[in-house]
């Protein structure tokens, strides 16, 4: 009896697998769907790169509708994102691609947008409860980010020393998840010599982050490393440490853009940092959103689709959240002296 059950399950699983793989959706080009790419705010290089990728996919797919890249100012990020979400629904846009900076506060406007027929696809930073969200395009597995950050800390500190984290905003769901994953990874025996002493927030503003980095250097005399999982924080920290001539004692690492980090990596202030390709993230987000908005995929777990030059992807349950679906992009690139110059070009 037991054997029968198990074998039935196996057959079911095999069947489900074969159905999924047999039906890889290929995008039909040339349909009309007005798309909105909504970053946390404007004026940040990675978001502009994501836009570049989205524009590439927009042209490749021959969408006869518009692709609009618009966002709020940093001081007005939460209210601004809500406003743009609401206005996009009023304009009957087919999809809003959101890097969420408003935490749960975006939920009512996202739910209203969905009710009005506008799909909401998140990328870079999801809606924590997944309410009002169709899909999340995850850049890399959040658990993997944690391990990569722990590994970089381990290699820069040579296995022993104190380090602190300088994050974005306290409510940024992506950064919080990565830091949590890093702390989980740090429990492993390999990292026993590392001491994570503090987490501070620079609100993704250069000046605030710069001052927070200096404050960390003052507060912890034995600090060996500042880990900043945000492209704004890592540059500001590296600049602060270099300005104070502290690169000999305190190194900087985290997630950064090669073009902004190249000087600090070459002069040894930030010997290693990591990132995924934001152009690819924008491309994949656009591709997925286009197919969702034009009804070519339903946005259900198990669906497989082809995303142009990036190959095939499958929608799956997001293991990092209680609810929600994701498409996982991956992989990671760790940058150092050997490869940063080429990537910065």
């Amino acid at each position: 009896m037991k054997v029968w059950k198990v074998s039935t399950l196996a057959v079911c699983a095999a069947l489900a697998g074969s159905i999924a793989s047999a039906e890889t959706a290929i995008a039909q080009k040339g349909l009309e769907a007005d798309m909105v790419l909504l970053p946390k705010f404007l004026g940040i290089l990675p978001f502009d790169q994501a836009n570049q990728g989205a524009q590439e996919a927009h042209e490749e797919l021959g969408n006869t509708g518009d692709l609009l890249y618009t966002g709020p100012t940093p001081e007005n990020s939460v209210a601004g994102q809500i406003e743009i979400m609401t206005t996009s629904a009023s304009q009957k846009s087919a999809a809003v691609m959101l890097s969420n900076n408003a935490g749960e506060q975006i939920v009512p406007s996202a739910v209203a947008a969905q009710a009005a027929g506008t799909k909401v696809v998140t990328w870079d930073s999801p809606i924590p409860s997944a309410k009002g969200e169709s899909l999340f395009i995850a850049q890399v597995d959040f658990g993997e980010i944690g391990v990569v950050m722990a590994d970089m800390a381990h290699s820069i500190l040579d296995g022993e020393g104190e380090f602190a984290t300088l994050s974005a905003t306290p409510d940024a769901s992506n950064q919080n998840a990565w830091i949590a994953a890093m702390e989980e990874a740090l429990k492993g025996p390999k990292y026993a010599g590392l001491k994570h002493v503090d987490i501070v927030y620079g609100n993704d503003q250069s000046e605030v982050s710069y001052n927070r980095a200096l404050a960390l250097a003052d507060k912890y005399p034995n600090l060996g490393l500042i880990m900043s999982p945000t492209s704004v924080g890592i540059v500001a920290s590296a600049k602060a440490i270099q300005d104070e001539d502290l690169c000999g004692q305190i190194k900087v690492s985290g997630l950064g853009v090669p073009a902004e980090m190249v000087t600090y990596t070459m002069n040894g202030c930030a010997p290693e940092f990591a990132l995924w390709d934001f152009v690819d993230l924008g491309y994949l987000t656009y591709y997925t959103s286009y197919m969702l908005a034009t009804g070519q995929i339903e946005g259900e777990a198990g669906e497989t689709f082809n995303a142009g030059r990036m190959g095939d992807y499958t929608i799956e349950k997001d293991p990092t959240r209680d609810a929600g679906l994701r498409v996982l992009m991956g992989p990671f690139t760790v940058y150092n002296k050997d490869n940063v110059e080429a990537a910065a070009k």
């Binding site: 001081e75 939460v78 809500i82 408003a102 935490g103 749960e104 939920v107 009512p108 306290p170 409510d171």
Partner: peptide, 12 residues
């Protein structure tokens, strides 16, 4: 309206 609160509510 937002169904959620944060320390930066209504900031500025």
């Amino acid at each position: 309206r937002l169904g959620a609160v944060r320390g930066d509510a209504a900031l500025g």
